[in-house]
Amino acid sequence: MSELDYLAPPTVEDAVRALAAGGGSAKVLGGGTDLLVQLRAGRIKPGVIVDLKRIPGAIGVREEAGGFVIGAATPGAVIGEHAGLVGAWPGVVEAANLIGSTQVQGRASLAGNLCNASPAADSVPAMIAAGATCLVVGPAGRREIPVEQVAVGPGRTSLAADEFVLEIRLPARPQRSGDAYLRSIPRTEMDIAVVGAGVALTLDAAGTVTAARVALGAVAPTALLVPEAGAAIVGTPLDETALEALDAAARAAARPISDKRGTADYRIKIAGVLARRAAAIAYRRAADQGRGGRA
């Protein structure tokens, strides 16, 4: 009969050792809202589960050099209660808080959402747009990589079997900046994104977009950073022409499949719609902030 071990190592080093010892059959546990579901459904059969939650700092948000460091197993509920983070990166927070329900929010983490590597993961486009990075630890030490380099395909990451994400890092928010995330689901909650779009942008004093990052979810095997979409609005006051160009660039980048959750044609159109709408919200947030909101 198959056996399953559970370990909750107290240090990073112990966790790395446990993963290495487990070989390919070890699985990292964050909140478990993906992992336990997959386990129960028989989709994965790990030999050992390595729970990160006992590692000091794994749960919690701290400010560092104007930016934010989010422990790998920090649940959505904690993220949503961090006033500094909510003020600086509302798009990332709203994406994290969209995940599941109140119950799921008590567990679900950004790192888990990222490492589960679903193309439809909600927080990932928002993190990519925000320029988030993650700190990966393993036997060879630590490395910091952009969020968009983690997922390489549905359910697959660039991490080695004995590596894990220790922290998600968000940069200091530039002045007059705002971000936003929107997803399209047939229902109003408890659903999986048919398309997701994250936008982060920065304005100058006159309201012209000086920098923009646009990322799309659920329209390709991994979340996409779409530089053309960002470029489409840089140098504009996000007027109707710019929004049209953004819409077109997002559609051009989307290469979804047709499945039970939506046709490719529909997803492409919605990618444009959501990019446009998310950009408008991000713009408003940036402008509000420029008008004497928090600096």
């Binding site: 909650e189 659903d191 039970k260």
Partner: peptide, 24 residues
């Protein structure tokens, strides 16, 4: 009920078989 070409139900769960939730 969504069936694939082989007659397999593709959405045999409450995630993809969408009953309304309260907020709908």
């Amino acid at each position: 009920y969504i069936f694939d070409a082989d007659g397999q139900m593709e959405n045999a769960g409450f995630l993809d078989y969408r009953v309304p939730v309260a907020s709908d």
